[in-house]
Nucleic acid binder design. Sequence first.
DNA 1: TAGATTGTTAATCGATTAACAATC
DNA 2: TAGATTGTTAATCGATTAACAATC
Lengths: 205, 205
Amino acid sequence: MRKDVPKIVVARLPVYLRDLSQLRDEGKEVTSSQELGKRLGISPAQIRKDLSHFGEFGKQGTGYNVSYLIEQLRRILHADRNWKIILVGAGDLGHAMVHYTGFRKQGLHIIGVFDNDPQKIGQRWGELTVMDASTIEDFIQKENVRIVILAVPAKVAQQVADRLVNAGIRAILNYAPIVLHLPNGILVEYIDPVVHLQYMTYFLE
Amino acid sequence: MRKDVPKIVVARLPVYLRDLSQLRDEGKEVTSSQELGKRLGISPAQIRKDLSHFGEFGKQGTGYNVSYLIEQLRRILHADRNWKIILVGAGDLGHAMVHYTGFRKQGLHIIGVFDNDPQKIGQRWGELTVMDASTIEDFIQKENVRIVILAVPAKVAQQVADRLVNAGIRAILNYAPIVLHLPNGILVEYIDPVVHLQYMTYFLE
DNA sequence: TAGATTGTTAATCGATTAACAATC
DNA sequence: TAGATTGTTAATCGATTAACAATC
């Protein structure tokens, strides 16, 4: 079995991709590990090393073709296809996620929104209608959804996550401020603004 | 000069604090590095090592008093006081942030919201009124605000951040999907759900 | 060619873990 | 006391960086 690419390397690729897209939008056709490093606050050596896990994408003397590297990173990250995502929890945060335009451009499509509040079920959210949480399992199976954005209260996050995993979900972006306990192989990423803010207040007087 | 605590250690403290608060809510009065480690998916040795950078908080044979450790972590993280925060960018995400109840409990108070859209200025958001972005500097100085949540479009994020830093801001929680270039000493934390989702799609077929 | 930059190796740096004396 | 768990040291593991041959 070939050695895995370190997770921390994979975690940087989306940031490279994001910045390269910006470079392209600015009209740049070629860049270098040095330029990219300066833009990202990362050493050029690290960028070259990270990329070297996946192949050779540059040319000595000139650097990297921006469009080509974007294409390659999209392929590596599986960002070159469309992903169906469901959102569970139709609160304010869920509302913001559904209306966020940054997902679609990356092939990340929220195709269903769920809540268990009768007040919310049936509400029209953009092109979507908030559905009854009791129908999540059917929807996941019918649509073959593998990714969830979880934006429910902390108190119910674990039990909802258990249901989702049972229904076949493979990856959870968890906005609830708790650590989830799930079977091996289920991917979980955490976003909690309080954690970031408290990290910063540590350094403030 | 005493050696700094590694940043990665500081970054884990808010997660410890969050989980300890949950333990306390569950009625637990004492815990151990082993229990905490299991809950967090972290090795017990790492938890003890992390805490040892700041003092001795446990008792051999019994473990840690939950309330006492919470108190100590809050002190270490400066989470035992109130922090004034302003939100810049009154979009859907900003709306969700202002209405999020998870901040206040931690002493994190959003005391002002700003936008440059005349349609939004003057809108009532809970207890706050959306203010004209041209008045940000005055507000920061008058209220002595040091933390900003930045939720503006990527295109303007850098220039807005520059203004904020000029006005005296010390820490930015940046939701705009770009890397900010700011003077040394300015703290910036990034939240970009696309980065997390693309990290996960790497592992999905 | 001369200058620039890659991809890679080896060295360095830093973080995690194992182990255990101390002690509750 | 016996059992449990801390705080800490030393060993291990892994990630970052410096350096450079290759080459565009």
